[in-house]
Structures are given as C-alpha cells and as structure tokens.
Simulated assay, not measured.
Amino acid sequence: MNETWRNSVKTLVKETFGGPPSEGGMFTEARPNSGLFGTLDKLTANEASVSVNGATVAAHADHTRFYLWGTNAILKDGKQPDMNWEESWKISSVDDEGWHRIREELRHEYATLLESLDELEWNEPLTKEVLGSLAHSAYHLGAIRQMLKAIKM
C-alpha cells in the first residue's frame, strides 16, 4: 500500500483518538485534547454514567473499544470474531475503577490498531474494515461530545 495512504489513515486515526496535531485538525476542533481520549479523560465516573437518551458515555466508550477489538481481530486473523453487539451497550454506570479500565482498554485497542496499520497487507476488505473503524470511532466521538452538552449543563 502506498505510504501516503497509510500515513493519511494513521493521521486521521490519531486525530480521532488523540486530537489534532499542533497545526490544526482535519475534522476535530483545532485545540489540544479534543479527540476521544481528551474528551473522556475530562469526565468523572459519575458523569460518564449519566444516561442521555438511553445511553451513557461509558457505554459509548466501551462500545467503541469493542468495535476496535473486532477490527483488530479481523486485521490479525482475517475473519470477524464472534461479537455480541448488545452486550457492548449494557454499561449503565461505572465506578472510578471501571471508568479507568474502560479508558485503558480503549487505549490498548487504539495502540494495537496503530501497530497493525504499519504491518497491514492492505487489500479491499481490510481497507474497508479500517476505514469503517475510523468512521465508527469518529461518530462516537461526535455523539459523546453532544452528550456532554446535557451532562455538563
């Protein structure tokens, strides 16, 4: 795969999770910590447990982790693992330890994805999987950012 393509995908994945580089972002706010990690790290466990329209930020974060886990399994093994999507939405509240665990596991799956992108034998199905995971994660970042408007009123 073309290095320009690989580097572009990695830049967008990094922006989704870590926020934009210092020179400004492509789609997140052009300020530090506006990616998923910075957004989640500003929340307490109690805030992450507030239900907004039937879901919590904790559930969105863990669902994003779950999706990344599935993507990482596909990139590694070439097939989708058994995934119970309903289970990925069942978190209604977290304590401090649980909230920390969700964020650490999300960071782990993100790091695994970045490593995989460097090693990936790009083809159409895997490219679609990576781009789908990027879009899915960016969607949940936007959803969480909108939820914050209700949580932090």
Results as ranks from 00 to 15, higher is better:
I91D: 03
G38D: 05
G70E: 09
N72H: 09
S88W: 08
R31N: 11
I102P: 04
K76G: 05
A61T: 11
G98Q: 14
F66S: 14
W69D: 08
N53A: 13
L36R: 00
V50F: 00
G98K: 10
E97R: 08
T64L: 14
R101Q: 14
G70A: 12
L68F: 04
G35V: 01
D77I: 00
W85Q: 10
H100G: 06
P81C: 11
H63F: 13
A58P: 01
K76D: 08
R65C: 08
W89C: 04
W89D: 09
T44F: 05
T64W: 03
N84G: 05
T39D: 08
N72T: 13
W89K: 15
P81D: 12
E104M: 06
P81T: 09
W99P: 04
V57C: 00
W85L: 06
E87G: 07
I102L: 05
K79W: 02
N84L: 08
M83S: 12
N46P: 02
K42L: 13
A59G: 06
I91L: 07
G35I: 01
W89Q: 15
I91K: 08
S51Q: 11
D62W: 15
W89T: 11
V52W: 03
F66M: 13
G70W: 10
E97M: 05
R65D: 08
G35T: 01
N53G: 05
V94T: 02
L36D: 06
T39A: 01
W89F: 12
F66T: 14
D77C: 02
L36C: 03
S92W: 03
A55W: 09
D95Q: 12
T71M: 12
A61L: 10
T39M: 04
E104G: 07
L40F: 02
T71N: 11
I102E: 07
P32E: 14
H63Q: 13
L68R: 03
A73D: 09
E104F: 03
V94S: 01
G54E: 10
K76S: 07
E86Y: 03
K42D: 13
A48W: 01
A59L: 06
R101G: 02
R65Y: 12
S51M: 08
T71L: 14
N33M: 11
L36A: 00
K76F: 05
D96L: 00
P32D: 14
F27S: 04
G35Y: 02
R101I: 13
V57Y: 05
G98R: 09
D41H: 11
S92M: 10
E47P: 00
N46D: 13
V50K: 13
A48P: 00
T44V: 02
Q80L: 15
Q80G: 07
N53C: 10
S49D: 02
L68H: 04
T28C: 11
F37T: 08
E29P: 06
E29W: 05
I102A: 03
G98I: 02
T56Q: 05
L40K: 07
V57F: 01
S92Y: 09
F27K: 12
R101P: 01
S34N: 03
S92E: 11
R103C: 03
E47C: 00
T71E: 12
I91R: 07
H100D: 06
D77N: 12
K90G: 04
T71A: 14
T28L: 10
L40Y: 01
H60F: 06
